[in-house]
Design a protein around this nucleic acid. Structure first.
Lengths: 227, 227
DNA sequence: GTCTATATTCTGATAGAC
DNA sequence: GTCTATCAGAATATAGAC
C-alpha cells in the first residue's frame, strides 16, 4: 500500500478548486481519499499528528467522523500514506534533478536548489514527513529511513566525485552531505508562504551556499586585496 | 514565572546520579520540580508534547500522577518552563560566545560553533524548544519568538559588519543569518549521541561551513589551476 | 508534598441503517 | 460510501485524606 497512489496527491494540493462545475460546493464528492489526505496534511503540519483528531480531519472535508475509516484503517495509516509517499516524492525529485546535470558541482547545485524549493513549496507535507516519524509504526519507519539513506547517498556521491575531480574540497563527505540536506529540510520548519522570499529564491540562495560550502579554494590570497 | 529558575536545570541533566549518598534510590526526594522537568524534557523530546501523558512524566520520577500538579499548574505550563528557559539559555550562550571575539568572522565562527554544539549536546531540550512552539499558549509563544529574533539579530549583525569590513560577501544578510541558525538548529533533530561525531566536532565543522558560506572570495581564479 | 480515588471530557474506532 | 449513534478506553485535572 501507500505506493499505489504514488505521486497522485504530491504534485499539488494548495488549490482544491479544480471543480469543473464551478460551484465549489463544500461537500462535493470527488475523491474522498485524496481530500482526506490533503486535510490531514494540513492538520498534521499545523498542529502535529497527536494533536489532530480524526474528527477534525473528517470535518474539514465535510464528512462524518466515521467516514474516514472507510478510506483508511486507522489514523496512523493515514500518516503512513502521507509519509511514505512524501519521502518517495522527495527521492524522485532528487534523482531527477541530479540527472539533469553532468558535472558534480552542477549536479549538487541542481539537487540542493530543487530539494530546498520543494521543502518550501510543499512545506506542510515536508513538516509531516520530517517531524512525525516517531508516530509511525516500526515497519513504516524502516521504509522511510531507507528512502532517506538513498537521498543522502545521492548527495554524498556528488561530494565524493567533486573531491576526486578537484572541484570540491570536502573533508568529511558524510557529515557535509547530512548538513546540506539538513539545511534544506529545515526550511519546512520556518518557511511562511507570506514571507518576502519565494520558494524558488530560497532554492537558488541555498544552491549558492552549498556551492560555497564545498568548492575547492585557491591556496589563500595575500591579506587585504579587496577594494 | 519561568525565569525564576533561570539556568538551574540548563547546565546539565544527563547524569541524575549526583546523589551524595551513593544509593541512587529510584524514589529519592530532592527537588521534585527539577526532576519533573528533566523527565518531561526526555518524554517531550522522544514522543512529542501531545503524545506524552502527565502520568508518564510523573511515573518516570516515581511520583503519582497527581503530584505533578503540586509543582506545575498544568502540562502546558511545564512545557512553557522548558521552552522559555531553553530559549533564554540559547540566547545567553550566543551572546557570551560573541563577546569572546572581536572580529566579525571570528565572532560568527564562535557563535555558530557554540550554538551548534549546544544543539547537539542538549539535543533533547533543543528539540522541545524548536518543535513544540505551536503547543505553547500565545503569550509564551510571543516570548520565545522575541528571544529568537534577538538570536538572529546577533548573527545578522556579524554578517553586516563583515560585509562592511570586506571580510564577508553576503548579499542577503537576513536570509543567510536565518539559514545559518537553521542549519545549527536542525542538528537537534537528527543528532544521536551514539553517533561517531561528538557535539564539539560537529560544532567545529559547522563553524567552518559557516565561514565558507560568508567569506569574501578573491575575484575568481582562472579555470583549471589545481593539481 | 504526596497519596488514592474520581470527575469530566475527549478520542480512536465500531455497529448497523440507508 | 456515507450517515447516526455509541462503545471502551484514556487523558487532564481535581478532591480530600494523610
Amino acid at each position: 500500500m501507500a505506493t499505489r497512489s504514488a505521486m497522485s496527491w504530491t504534485d499539488d494540493g494548495d488549490e482544491p478548486n479544480d471543480d469543473p462545475g464551478g460551484e465549489a460546493a463544500p461537500t462535493r464528492s470527488g475523491d474522498s481519499s485524496r481530500r482526506l489526505i490533503e486535510a490531514a496534511i494540513e492538520a498534521f503540519a499545523d498542529r502535529g499528528f497527536h494533536a489532530t483528531t480524526t474528527r477534525d480531519i473528517a470535518t474539514r472535508v465535510g464528512l462524518s467522523p466515521a467516514a474516514l475509516y472507510v478510506h483508511f484503517p486507522s489514523k496512523q495509516a493515514l500518516l503512513a500514506e502521507i509519509s511514505v509517499v512524501g519521502h518517495e516524492a522527495a527521492l524522485d525529485l532528487v534523482e531527477r534533478s541530479a540527472a539533469t546535470q553532468t558535472g558534480s558541482v552542477d549536479r549538487l547545485r541542481a539537487v540542493i536548489r530543487d530539494f530546498t524549493a520543494w521543502h518550501a513549496e510543499r512545506y506542510r507535507v515536508a513538516r509531516v514527513v520530517h517531524h512525525e516519524i516517531a508516530a509511525l509504526a516500526d515497519t513504516d519507519q524502516s521504509r522511510v529511513l531507507d528512502v532517506r539513506r538513498k537521498i543522502e547517498g545521492v548527495v554524498e556521491a556528488q561530494l565524493s566525485a567533486g573531491n576526486a575531480s578537484g572541484e570540491m574540497d570536502v573533508p568529511d563527505t558524510r557529515a557535509v552531505a547530512r548538513a546540506l540536506l539538513s539545511l534544506s529540510v529545515d526550511v519546512a520548519r520556518w518557511y511562511d508562504p507570506r514571507g518576502s522570499r519565494t520558494a524558488a529564491q530560497i532554492g537558488d540562495l541555498y544552491a549558492d551556499l552549498a556551492t560555497r560550502m564545498v568548492s575547492a579554494r585557491p591556496p589563500a590570497p595575500p591579506e587585504g586585496e579587496r577594494t
